[in-house]
Design a protein around this nucleic acid. Structure first.
Lengths: 248, 248
DNA sequence: CGATTCCTTGAAACTTGTCAAGTTCCGTGG
DNA sequence: CCACGGAACTTGACAAGTTTCAAGGAATCG
């Protein structure tokens, strides 16, 4: 659990850095596989691609061929509905997987856009299925990943269904904090890669409400916010914002 | 491709209606499998159980061993949080699967309770993984099912994040209508198995708001509601409630 | 058939959304 | 490298939708 530096410089010059030598092993696909099994994955990931900030990795409707792992950078996924409504469904950082929704229909159901210059690993899904038939540990791990996505969504439902604006934002910040921490970054100081509007959309709030909540948290000494730069001053108090939400 | 007797040691002598003869074939696990492949499933499902109304099929925290398919009846799944907050995550009817969330942690993360006397098929997950390594079509179908769950959740996020009370309820009714229809029941007349409070919780609303919205719909001639009995009088108008929600 | 649960409806309160204005930030082009 | 212009952010005042509180009535179960 020690925050060792999983994120040390990825040597791009030797672009062969496959799963077996990837610094994200503990966070990405290979979790729980042994050395030999991870070796198989090297053949699986057949393309590393760079995605420029603002560019889409994929769009809804595009045929589904591959899953994508964020190697570096930051993404946003969102669904668009006929009537123009939009819902941000997640923000993905290094080690996280995108595209699981597309399996159901063989076409992407959401859009994925890079919020900063990013690198991704492309995992052809057919190959993943092939390989996971031969490597039970991989199969099981993949199932866990999909399941984790479902659990994550359930948490978001609770947030959207029963939390106040302050609670939502506190939850959001704590979630980011936890994820940055798990990657060896500071839990208390980080940059928001997304706009207030994107945060608001994700949390089911308007951007003004997000802005006001940030200001309120700052006034109360919970955080220090300067535009995209966030510093959490009182983790416990942030947690308390959520916990005190109900039941006197 | 797949060997003959893949799963052994399971006693099924008294199981009359296994997957190969189940009327839900098109809705449940077997989708897309051929006859021989479906035959394998008969060995997979090792227990059919009855769950009385109000009884829990499983509770959060219980060790995960099996997935469950609703054979008959109606369930509700919900998550409970430390502070007592509750969020209904879905209502499951015949042919739908429960328990996918539990794969991630080897323990159930949500509770499942029967809203009426119901029958379920228990599918030991380990066996499902075993079999799906040998039957690619089953493997792929299972992945699609998990993915579909993720897509479903995304739709719910949109609903919770950006719809008004009326839009939420209209969406809810249309979703039920579609699912009943897909099972050969009337699309326009059905019984709600859940209370107003459960509907409200699912939709992120209070029960009073649900009740008022029902009354409003009735006044406007969209539906006829008498307690749990719903009759949809104007499907198109219900659709319009949603479509007109945003951006002209 | 009685008790409990569920549902409906009204009025008031409150949170969040809407509209508007002003400021700051940041990328682009000169 | 600086200046410009658009995008992003903050803040206030007001409006709107939903919740809360309250009470009465209907349905359901044992």
């Amino acid at each position: 659990m020690a925050p060792r530096s999983v994120v040390k410089g990825v040597n791009l010059s030797q672009l062969k850095s496959a799963c077996s030598s990837c610094s994200l092993q503990e966070l990405c696909l290979p979790i729980g596989l042994n050395k030999e099994e991870i070796g198989y994955l090297d053949d699986l990931v057949y393309r590393k691609r760079q995605v420029k900030r603002g560019d889409h990795l994929y769009r809804a409707g595009m045929p589904f061929e591959s899953l994508y792992a964020v190697r570096n950078g930051f993404f946003k996924t969102y669904v668009l509905y006929e009537d123009g409504r939009e819902q941000v469904t997640g923000f993905q950082m290094m080690g996280e997987i995108m595209g699981l929704d597309a399996i159901s229909t063989d076409a992407h159901t959401c859009h994925a856009v890079a919020l900063e210059d990013s690198d991704i690993c492309e995992v052809p899904f057919e190959k993943l299925e092939d390989l996971s038939r031969k490597v039970p540990a991989l199969q099981h791990h993949f199932h866990k990943m999909m399941s984790r996505e479902i659990v994550r969504d359930q948490g978001l439902m609770l947030l959207l269904g029963s939390m106040t604006a302050d609670e939502r934002l506190a939850t959001f910040l704590l979630n980011l904090s936890q994820r940055f921490g798990a990657r060896g970054y500071s839990r208390t100081e980080f940059l928001l890669r997304m706009t207030r509007e994107e945060i608001g959309n994700y949390l089911g709030l308007k951007l003004e409400t997000v802005s006001r909540a940030f200001s309120r948290f700052q006034d109360e000494g919970l955080i220090e916010v300067q535009n995209k730069a966030i510093q959490i001053l009182d983790l416990e108090a942030l947690n308390h914002v959520i916990a005190s939400g109900r039941r006197p």
